[in-house]
């Protein structure tokens, strides 16, 4: 039982990061119908900036904010100079543009921060808590708390604010939104900025658990994509649920089946689900425009 609890704690913690990444995928997808393969790099930027800035003596909150700001700037630049310009290109061309962006960002990070691993201390001490025989680190609590707060804030933004409603409207019907006066181009930029902020914040809180290095975003991003597809592309609640499902399944199978196959779990789940439910768990199967 203690073991099961331990696996569950680990799973929920890492699942939270997947959820944040998946939410980022969903927001960008809604606004522009682009899958942004550079989403993982936002996580990397957040983690690297926070780790290196605090090491240089910058207070933690300031370092996190700087990381978020940097990621948002990068996100807006990608949206403005790459995605917007290639609006009418095919799905696969857009995929390659965002992959090009992610290769570029990793290369940039290597130049700016170097290729070595960076350590970031836990936000509030190393003394762990015990929960029914399982060890819960304070950093896990930070991850959970921050994720919950961000998801809540994102939900409020989309349902309660004018800007959020305009973004939602655009995802439902781009033309109609345009007709009622929504600036669709700004919506795409805002979506990239928002998803970058979510990713970077996730990167900052997870950095004390995983270390920060230039390649940290690759797997986190891909699993975030899997989680987003699992929940149904463009479905925010589904994305969060998908992230937690992937995280927990991964941790449990690492414990009970095989730790070596841990990374395959997310993809086995998503392939299996897509075979039987082509629109993900919570999505509707799309109809193709003729």
């Amino acid at each position: 039982m203690a073991e099961f609890l331990q696996y569950l704690v680990t799973g929920v913690t890492i699942g939270s990061i997947y959820a944040l990444a998946a939410l980022g995928f969903a927001i960008v997808y809604n606004a522009s119908h682009v899958i942004n393969f550079a989403q993982g790099e936002f996580i990397m930027i957040g983690g690297m900036a926070t780790a290196t800035l605090t090491a240089a003596g910058v207070p933690l909150p300031l370092a996190i904010l700087a990381g978020i700001a940097g990621a948002m700037l990068v996100g807006v630049l990608i949206a403005k100079f790459a995605v917007e310009r290639a609006r009418n290109a095919s799905v696969v061309t857009l995929i390659i543009i965002t992959i090009g962006a992610s290769i570029f960002l990793r290369g940039l990070a290597e130049v700016v921060w170097g290729k070595e691993f960076h350590r970031l201390d836990s936000f509030s001490g190393n003394a762990p808590l015990m929960l029914g025989g399982a060890v819960v680190t304070t950093q896990s609590l930070w991850v959970l708390g921050v994720t919950a707060a961000l998801i809540l804030a994102t939900g409020l933004f989309f349902n309660r604010t004018m800007a959020g409603k305009a973004m939602l409207a655009t995802s439902h019907n781009r033309l109609a939104a345009q007709l009622v006066g929504v600036n669709v181009r700004h919506v795409v930029l805002a979506a990239f900025a928002l998803s970058a902020a979510l990713g970077a914040m996730g990167g900052a809180v997870v950095a004390p658990i995983t270390y920060s290095y230039t390649e940290m975003g690759i797997m986190l991003g891909l699993k975030g994509f899997a989680a987003a597809a699992l929940g149904g592309l463009g479905n925010g609640v589904g994305a969060v649920a998908g992230g937690l499902i992937v995280g927990i399944a991964e941790s449990l199978s690492a414990g009970y089946i095989s730790s070596a196959y841990k990374d395959a779990v997310a993809f086995v789940i998503i392939v299996a689900v897509l075979v039987f439910m082509p629109g993900g768990l919570f999505g509707r199967a799309g109809t193709e425009r003729v």
């Binding site: 799905v91 994509f225 899997a226 592309l233 392939v271 897509l274």
Partner: peptide, 12 residues
């Protein structure tokens, strides 16, 4: 599968 779902499945 269509578009991005196909990308996801083949990637997986």
């Amino acid at each position: 599968l269509k578009g991005h779902y196909l990308a996801m499945a083949t990637l997986g």
